[in-house]
């Protein structure tokens, strides 16, 4: 068993500076859901606000927050949320650096991150957590409350606010530029 570190959102620099790749984390507090379309809208607004020289009108403040890439299955009556495992993070790579620049501190998904995103995490001090892809039922039990935040027209792709308890994660990219995907492969690779 890997021992786990409990942390709470919003995340500050001190907390995440302690996280290293391979750490198991139990996250508590609020995470916001967003997938492809929601990311596009967030970034469009940031760019527009930048051009018009005004404060962006975002559905939630990015500072210290964590985004979870997820599109849950429908919930059965009596359940908080349906099965809700992570989706592939790489699809969000075009949008992530600008969100990190604006204060986002963590992202949760599955699979590798692109080079630009990893660099941006180092530069703006943010981490990428992997939730186990396909562990959708187990993960959904750690979500205690759900509320809609914005873009309801997107259905399962809308932005939801999730209250999570001991949400099980693994640090895959830390603020020091390390990448567990690379390091893990190097460590366990056998040359034949």
């Amino acid at each position: 068993m890997v021992s786990s570190i409990k942390i709470e959102t919003p995340l500050d620099e001190e907390t995440i500076s302690k996280l290293k790749i391979g750490n198991k984390v139990l996250l508590n507090g609020i995470v916001y859901t967003a997938r492809d379309q929601a990311h596009k809208r967030l970034v469009d607004e940031l760019e527009k606000a930048g051009k018009e020289n005004r404060q962006p009108n975002l559905p939630f403040p990015l500072e210290g927050q964590v985004i979870y890439y997820v599109g849950p299955a429908p919930s059965r009556p009596g359940m908080v949320i349906g099965p809700a495992g992570p989706t592939t993070s790489g699809r969000m790579d075009t949008y992530t650096p600008i969100l990190l620049e604006k204060g986002l501190k963590g992202t949760i998904g599955k699979g590798r991150r692109g080079k630009d995103t990893i660099e941006a995490m180092k530069k703006y001090k943010a981490v990428y957590f992997v939730a186990v892809g396909g562990a959708a039922v187990l993960i959904s039990k750690r979500i205690k409350r759900i509320g809609t935040v914005a873009y309801e027209d997107l259905g399962p792709e809308a932005i939801y606010r999730l209250e999570v308890e001991d949400f099980p994660l693994i640090v895959a990219n830390d603020v020091y530029g390390n990448d567990l995907f690379d390091e893990g492969m190097k460590k366990y690779r056998k040359v034949t």
Partner: peptide, 10 residues
Amino acid sequence: NLGLGPQGLG
């Protein structure tokens, strides 16, 4: 032998 492992984390 590639070393990817479960979820690609090694």
